[in-house]
Amino acid sequence: MITKEQFQTIVPDVSWKFIEPYLGIYEEVLEKYEINTPLRKAHFLAQISHESGSFRFVIENLNYSAKALFAVFRKYFPTLAAAELCARQPEKIANKVYSSRMGNGDEASGEGWKYRGRGLIQLTGKDNYKAFSADTGQDFVANPDLVTQPEWALSSACWFWKKRKINQFADADDIHMVTKRINGGFNGLEHRQHFLDEYKRLYNIE
């Protein structure tokens, strides 16, 4: 078990107050999803540290400016004027961007907002909430905010990791493929590598 002193000394970029709720449960949860070697744990913790803003965020921030919407979601906001209509309105943004896909209903259904990203690796879309519910016996479809609780924020990230068969790339110490499976590309690779180096020191991996 990692101690508070080890963690604070070796992984200083993650605040103890954010990681503390997870350290009492993470060994058991990770084992359940076969994230059960030092190298697998190092890769997993590096990725979720990056994805969650060092464990600070367990729900998607959709408070985009018009310029950000136009840059990130140009498919849905083809002009800056179109983006202005939804800027700084997270619920409206989610319902537009996530409508009629990932199992969600149309924009008017409100399911884009209801099933926005939650957890340490942003579980998103009604289909994923259904699948996660089926595998755990919890009803996240009716109660999606449960995924923000530490046990389920962590479990949903582990579930995604196993579903995407990421252990094989962690075993090969291939941060590029691990990141691609998580992110779809290589966004934030340098930051992920920084965390990986820290977690490798924590687990005494040469």
Rank of each mutant, 00 (worst) to 15 (best):
A82Q: 05
L30S: 01
T79Y: 00
A131W: 10
R88Q: 12
W113Q: 00
L85H: 01
K75R: 15
E34P: 04
G103V: 01
A108K: 10
R74F: 13
P90H: 04
S99Q: 14
G105I: 05
K114Q: 01
L30K: 01
F57L: 15
V72E: 12
D106R: 11
F44V: 07
V97Y: 07
F55N: 14
E84M: 11
R56K: 15
D106G: 15
Y76I: 01
Y115S: 02
G110V: 00
E107G: 02
T136Y: 03
N61F: 12
S52E: 13
A83M: 03
A81F: 09
R40Y: 06
D139F: 00
K75F: 09
M102L: 15
A68G: 07
F70W: 15
K130N: 06
A81G: 07
Y33E: 08
Q122A: 14
Y129F: 13
Y33F: 00
L62M: 05
G112E: 05
R118Y: 14
E91M: 02
A87K: 03
N36V: 00
Y98E: 11
L80M: 05
N63F: 08
K32N: 08
V58N: 13
S65N: 02
K32S: 06
Q138A: 01
I93Q: 05
A42K: 00
G137Q: 03
